[in-house]
Write a protein that binds this DNA or RNA. Structure first.
Lengths: 258, 258
DNA sequence: CAGTGGTCTAGACCACCAA
DNA sequence: TGGTGGTCTAGACCACTGC
């Protein structure tokens, strides 16, 4: 080996063990993995530029094209943002040019100002079986629960509960959340170094119970959109379970299929 | 010009007119546009292979790499499917390896058999203002409306209405829809040459009215997921408006964010 | 075995940005 | 003006498929 692609001499050839699945992994995938490790280790902070393609190519002893393809995939996964003439930057939930990255609820017509947030509750508790399963914890592990309401133009629109691993988000308080400006995920990045990278949502229609109805100023039994979101950091580690109840009388959940 | 990239001599340089926006368009984008035209014109049918990268490169007087990048984008948009060692194929809703391409409703647990369909209604009528606006028609233009129920394991789960431009889908009958096996969008491809390429969905929670409740075997007022889908063919031409009501007591709408 | 898509390289040049 | 990402080419070789 090492003759056909001389510059990849010190990278895994990935076919040493004659296992059932040869598991051939192209060079650019390995480079992608290495960049991912640096990203994960915090070598470059959110919002910062990563080294130029040339630099990375030199560092990994690989051609620029190979680095390019690795970064292409990272960019496609929104882990990194390319800006021509400037560089490639670590994606962030702060200064995200356009609103909230994971919130797909949009007003039926027109624009709207920023959300007004009110924290209703923020407490430490022990993980229920369900929460533990979702967050890959053990039942009874410390968990932080936050409940809040988001309003648009004075109309309460979203009631959501968040569950966070207690160990990772040790110092989080209601005051801190109330004081913070911008997306909650930006706060997670800045204060706890936790970067949400992707999420899965399960959506249902449910009827509002008495308490929910009161908090969202709708009738009891009114239909609400239930959005259960599980957010992941790097390496598919689940880091937040969130259950939102959305009023959809003036807003709707927008999704693009292809 | 024509000196730096000699092989692109006969393709638009796209910067002839000194307009406000230079509108620079890279070669591979132009190639993509040309392939798109052929796709659109039906030069290759859904499921068929398009010419090899080498052939296309020769045809457009361009390097293989440039064609490759054009096809990469088409593949990313699901207009085309690459299969190593075999070729590149026009995407289709038939033989789509995995279930229904645009349906994001999945059972809460386990798998399930295919849907049982029952066509409730199929009639020709005149477009309402709302339908006309969605389908880019004029109010009063001929429109075809189909109503049906999909059941899983005998449980009615989806009630949907579809509105289709009457001119394009002239001969469509309830019998035809009932007889057809597989995705409805496959039927559209085979019988009418209409390929749905992307779609936008607006999702809300609503309460079932008396009729809807009866058809879905739920109580009146029960919360249902309302999914309004507008599907497009090539060139962003809207071709179908569909309004589905989903029961979400045993299923949920699944969405992945990144 | 030939043909297809997939990877990798090396080098040239272009578009964009900031200083 | 120099650096960054973006485009384009040409050629070599690899992995997969089917005859």
């Amino acid at each position: 080996m090492a003759t056909s692609t001389p510059s990849s001499a010190d990278l895994a050839t990935a076919d040493q063990a004659p296992s059932a699945t040869p598991a051939f992994s192209p060079l650019y995938q390995q480079i992608k993995g290495l960049i991912l490790q640096s990203l994960e280790a915090g070598e470059w902070k959110p919002g910062e530029a990563i080294p130029s393609e040339m630099d990375l190519a030199a560092r990994f002893r690989v051609s620029q094209g190979t680095v390019r393809k690795a970064i292409d995939e990272l960019a496609a996964e929104n882990l990194v943002v390319r800006r021509q003439g400037k560089g490639t930057f670590v994606a962030t939930h702060s200064e995200q040019h356009v609103r909230y990255r994971f919130l797909k609820l949009v007003p039926d017509s027109g624009d709207e100002g920023p959300a007004q947030r009110s924290i209703l509750d923020c407490r430490r508790l022990r993980a229920s079986a369900e929460v533990a399963r979702s967050l890959a914890l053990r039942t009874g592990d410390p968990v932080l629960q936050v409940r809040r309401v988001l309003s648009f133009g004075g109309v309460p629109t979203i009631l959501e509960d968040m569950w966070l691993p207690g160990n990772t988000f040790k110092g989080l308080t209601a005051e801190q959340m109330a004081a913070h400006q911008g997306p909650t995920y930006a706060l997670f990045e800045l204060e706890f170094g936790v970067r949400m990278v992707r999420a899965e949502e399960k959506i249902r229609a449910v009827a509002a119970d008495a308490q929910q109805a009161q908090l969202l100023a709708v009738d009891e039994g009114a239909p609400l959109l239930s959005v259960e979101r599980l957010s992941y950091t790097y390496n598919d580690v689940p880091m937040e379970l969130r259950r939102g109840l959305y009023r959809t009388d003036t807003h709707h959940y927008r999704n693009d299929l292809s």
